Computed example of a mutant assay.
Amino acid sequence: MQETPFCLSVGHILPSTMSESNSTDFINPSTFILLGIPGLEAAHNWISIPFCTMYTIALLGNFTILFIVKKEPSLHVPMYYFLCMLAVTDLVLSTSILPKMLSIFWFYSREINFSACLTQMYFILSFSVIESGILVAMAFDRYVAICDPLRHSTTLTNPVVAKIGLAVVLRGIMLVLPHPFLARRWPYCRTNIISHTYCEHLGVVKLACADISLSSYYGLSAALLVTTLDVFFITVSYTQLCVILVFHIPYLFAALTQRFGHKVALHFHVLMANMNLLVPPMLNPIIYGVKTQQIRTELRAELSGDMVLGPLP
């Protein structure tokens, strides 16, 4: 009896005559399977500890910044508006991958719906571009404050800040929008197993049994365009590049490794991809918040006030 090859088609198997006919219709798989970190499955519980710690720090740090800026009217200025945008973006980015990752590590819940997979992919890519744009906006704010301080308040008014924020969000939305649409239209007939902890763009489209050059080249071009332009504009304004290096270099490294790093161990690639999305949300509140005197002052005031009042009866 002739064996039927494995092929995804909404939960059933396509017949072996598939290769003999060019008219066969392919349908997207209903679910994908996320493996986690291939080769390190036995260490998933241990690996979850630092990832969970980074996520906790990111949540505490970014929510603290949002709380302090909202409560203190003196911080309602462009610099802190942009800082709040960065905090929200970091929260979305880290939350896009951590809950599902931990469910894989702790509960072996590896299935993810096809539409949910594309949604996760879109959120990760779009908010990465949005974060890069926010860093450019923050650099522009500092440039105006240093080079033209007398006109800073008239140049960066609240409506201008809102328009900049809207432009940054729209850029992220529109630039990444082709990714899920292209991924949805490819025929998938190889396997539904993704060797990753989340739905990485190339990790998904490489499962398609079609020429994915359009997805691959567009993804690389978008990554290079965003990184090159944004780093250029930021370096024009900043002299201290710690945040830029933390965010952009791992992002560009991950994009290049996906396409050219065939000799890089798969578990190393997966670990770096996760670090790329978790380290900036953890460090940004420290770099931008703790090192900002007004934030430190308000935070100390909050903490000292709580200690003076003590617990409620």
Rank of each mutant, 00 (worst) to 15 (best):
D211W: 04
A139C: 05
G261L: 03
Y188C: 04
G39Q: 02
L150D: 12
L214I: 00
G36W: 03
E3R: 09
T24P: 03
C199K: 01
Q293H: 14
V270A: 12
T95D: 09
T31A: 10
Y251P: 07
M79K: 12
S21D: 11
L59Q: 05
I134W: 15
Q294A: 11
L309M: 15
I68A: 14
L256F: 01
S237I: 07
L224H: 00
L118Y: 03
V144M: 15
A208R: 04
H269Y: 07
A139S: 13
H152E: 09
I173C: 13
Y188K: 09
L182M: 13
I112W: 08
G261T: 00
F260R: 07
V169H: 12
Q258R: 10
N158Y: 14
G203K: 00
M54T: 00
F107Q: 09
I173T: 14
F114Q: 06
L166H: 05
A87M: 04
N28Y: 11
T227H: 14
S221A: 14
P149D: 08
P149A: 15
L102P: 04
R184I: 12
T297P: 01
T31R: 15
V10L: 15
K263V: 15
A301C: 13
A222F: 01
E111L: 06
P5K: 09
S23V: 10
